[in-house]
Amino acid sequence: MKLSRIAAFSSSLLLGAVVALAGAGQAQADQSAAALDYVALGDSYSSGVGAGSYDGASGGCKRSNRAFPKLWAAAHAPSSFAFTACSGARTSDVTANQLTPLNSGTDLVSLTVGGNDAGFADVMTTCVLQSEANCLNRIDQAKGYVDSTLPGRLDSVYSAIRAKAPAAQVVVLGYPRFYKLNGSCTAGLSERERSAINGAADYLNAAVAKRAADHGYDFADVVPAFTGHEICSGAAWLHSVNWLNIGESYHPTASGQSGGYLPVFTSHA
């Protein structure tokens, strides 16, 4: 009888210790997340253009409350969060206008940039409004820029981030492919154009990933997360041409931010 009581008492102590350790581990994890100082930089894919619910105070930058940086900060409650991403930003805009919140105490930085430098908007305008030949030629021009000029531009902004936030983990996120090939679209661009646009996205992502890796940054590929949710998929997380709000065209919807960018960033943060 005494032995059984001793065994039960020992089991109770062991269970209590396990629970205490688990609780301590969770508290430590929560404390670690709360201690983070997070800064979100970049272009419209980070600011959340296309997701709606824009912060009026952000003006033309169109920072959305549904953008992945805002969603991540709401879920993890970092000790500080600065959201300076801005619609239309190029690498030079990030360097000139967005880096003020960075400092030696910054722990985490997210960034999307390079698409505007490569002429993303003009490529899509050309492809939608002009001939297939003009579309393919404009894509080739953009790829030439990615080869010749973009690496140096990326180096500049990546180096500027490291200079101001030497200890930060920097997560550089890429861009999705726009189209599901042989999908549900029956009008608009040709399959050849759609394939070339997808290939250009891959080309841009490869260049961004290479420069990020050379600076010791994490590259987060969002293409797998968006697979099955491209335009022409029937379950798109990207706007096609939006004639009522042309600036939202070819940008992630709120679902693209929460279902595409957010989990990919979370897995790297």
Rank of each mutant, 00 (worst) to 15 (best):
L3D: 00
R5E: 00
F9Y: 02
F9N: 00
L14E: 15
L15E: 08
L15S: 10
G16K: 05
V19Q: 03
A24K: 14
Q26N: 13
A27F: 14
Q28G: 07
Q31A: 14
D37P: 02
S46G: 10
G48M: 00
A51T: 06
D55L: 14
G59L: 03
S64A: 12
N65P: 11
P69L: 01
L71C: 01
A74H: 06
A75P: 06
A85Y: 03
S92R: 04
Q98G: 05
L99S: 15
S104N: 09
T106D: 02
V109T: 08
G115N: 03
T126F: 08
L129S: 14
A133C: 07
C135Y: 05
I139D: 00
K143R: 01
K143W: 07
T149E: 11
L150A: 04
L154T: 01
D155A: 03
V157R: 00
S159R: 11
R162E: 11
A165P: 12
P166A: 11
V172R: 08
G174M: 15
P176V: 13
R177S: 14
L181E: 11
C185S: 07
E191L: 05
R192V: 13
S195T: 15
L204N: 07
R211A: 07
R211C: 03
G216S: 12
D221T: 06
P224Y: 07
A225E: 10
S233M: 05
S233N: 07
L244F: 12
L244P: 09
L244T: 12
G247H: 00
E248D: 13
Y250K: 06
Q257R: 02
G260C: 08
L262P: 08
P263I: 01
P263N: 02
